[in-house]
Nucleic acid binder design. Structure first.
Lengths: 339, 339
DNA sequence: ACTTGGCACTCGCGGCTCGTGAGTGCCAAG
DNA sequence: CTTGGCACTCACGAGCCGCGAGTGCCAAGT
């Protein structure tokens, strides 16, 4: 009984604090929520909750504020799903449906996500390593430069300029282009490595160096830096919490400028279908210790291809944010399926 | 004489204010700069400068602060070029030289520019309308979808997904591809429109609809939204001025999220070779009224292709910033020439 | 015609005190 | 286990004040 009420108290504290951004006291609590007991009782519960580490008081004789642990419990056990309103759903749907290509889908996604959640939004491009190759193209830019272009089933287009030490004959480019097309089209990343294995041996010795460079670039394209494409938006929302709050925006902005950091934020989304929430210190990046990250995977067909999410202050509206992130991820999946 | 000294006083005020970010008084001025006159004299000059609108005092009995007009005069007539240090030049050069493709050049440019100037950096992709077409590629994605890819001499790669109402036969795609290749390769934007004129007439009647869609998409690709590609970086520097300063960062961040706004900022760079500075209210975007924008064009060969620049508080180090922006623009031009 | 020292005046800022009130912890009674 | 009562704590804001940087003006000097 008393255990149950304690959780209700915690929930009430989180809700009130998220709404007002001010420490909440026992009296205000009984007034706003009909808990059916007196402030004194609540005080006892609060003392217990504080003992357990779920809430804390900024200073003696102030109300209580949820700790990271408190938010965690709230998210895990206390929050109820807060479905989006119909107009919100429609707005998301319409906005995303107008996208003309993948870049546009990503740009629009980050925009709508930031707008709906009123927070900083992150959207990761579909991972190349989880896509299959649709087309490979080689275009000579000059006698010693070749542009390599890879198109995937997720409509992603990767380009890479290759610098060769010696002039490359047109015929070799054409030859290589068709060879690559045949052996790579329809292959996933894992298979690509195998398909390229030893491809240089079927060329004349003097051509092999070039072939090898192209093959290496191709593989490289599909791994390192390309998976790092993440779009960012809504940073202005950070400033809304203005000064005052323990959320110093400078370190956050700095962290968000590092692709590597963004990768870690989105990359560690757990495999499970739902929405992942990392609260305050739970997330691995220093400088984001007073922020929470809410992420979800999106898919093409049945394969998870990448993640998206938002970054906000720990005192965010978790149910609402989680619902929004989830919804947007689902719509993006749908858009990708259509293409 | 006195006119000359007045300008010296204005210069001193600007320099001191930029350095300390605090209103500067007559006494401090004579101490730091050897003007050879007494504070009282300086006060007279200051009164005159204030009368003319070059400086202002935040409140009675405070030092003076330069106005936008004051900065303007400083930039136009008083500032001396402050060349970059050798290590700075080397750092820029090395960092940019490592770029592997156009995306990388742009990303690295924005990064180094933000780092060197300690401000928000903007870099515009080479304008398509000022580039020439190197290659056109059509790739069937499904029976009714075609991916259109355009590669320019500036190594820019544009993609566009085309949705057709009816299935498109492979042969038509191949045919169209080669036709487009022949008629567009080497053409600039202005010529492209002419070259595509009436291209549909040489196809079978039932194919013309598709051909027309592709041609239209191609032209569209080279105009509207594609010119809008602008990379942004260093927003964390905004937070450095922290609260306190008249620079409220929220409106600035908001403005910087709008591609259209960024376009206007960079787009109105004057045609002249040097560096353009727009100070405070001079720049057309509300919300950026207390910021200055320093931009420069960069080139490929002899043609200006796009602009880059930085956004910072009006009390920035103009000589240093202008030198950095100029230098980076020149290095980018050089990199593009090499490709 | 400028420059300069003197001088009175202004006024933002930081430090100080102090009252208020929200909020707590504890306790004894229900 | 709950509840009303009660004493206690402390952050916060208002009000006050003295300091000092900085100004404008003026009369004397060059």
């Amino acid at each position: 009984m008393q255990e149950e009420r304690r959780l209700a108290v915690l929930r009430a504290i989180v809700e009130d604090y998220v709404a007002t951004h001010e420490p909440v006291g026992s009296k205000a609590l009984v007034e706003r929520h009909n808990l059916g007991v007196s402030p004194a009782t609540i005080r006892n519960d609060m003392a217990a909750l504080e003992e357990e580490g779920y809430i804390a008081q900024p200073h003696t004789s102030a109300g209580r504020v949820p700790t990271d642990l408190g938010y965690r419990l709230f998210v895990d056990r206390l929050s109820e799903v807060k479905p989006l309103t119909a107009p919100e759903r429609r707005a998301i749907e319409r906005f995303l449906d107008d996208a003309v290509d993948l870049d546009d889908v990503m740009a629009r996604t980050v925009r709508i996500l930031a707008q709906v959640t009123q927070q900083v939004a992150l959207v990761q491009y579909p991972s190349l390593t989880r896509s299959t190759i649709k087309h490979v193209e080689l275009v000579p830019m000059s006698s010693t430069r070749i542009m390599l272009i890879v198109i995937t089933d997720t409509a992603r287009v990767e380009q890479r300029l290759i610098e060769c030490s010696a002039p490359v004959p047109e015929t070799l480019v054409a030859d290589l282009r068709s060879r690559l097309g045949v052996s790579l089209t329809g292959k996933g990343y894992g298979e690509a490595a195998g398909a390229l294995e030893g491809i240089d041996e079927s060329f004349a010795p003097e051509e092999r160096a070039i072939v090898r460079v192209v093959a290496a670039t191709l593989l490289e394209t599909m791994t390192e830096r390309t998976d790092e494409r993440i779009v960012l938006g809504g940073t202005a929302h950070l400033a809304r919490y203005g000064q005052a709050f323990p959320l110093a925006i400078q370190p956050v902005l700095e962290a968000l400028e590092e692709q590597v950091v963004l990768m870690r934020l989105l990359g560690e989304t757990t495999g499970q279908a739902g929405v992942t929430v990392r609260i305050g210190h739970e997330n691995p990046i220093e400088g984001l210790a007073s922020t929470s990250v809410v992420t979800a995977r999106y898919e093409r067909g049945e394969h998870a291809v990448a993640s998206l999410g938002v970054v906000g202050p720990t005192h965010m509206d978790y149910p609402g944010t989680m619902a929004s992130v989830h919804a947007v991820a689902r719509y993006v999946s749908r858009i990708l399926d259509e293409q």
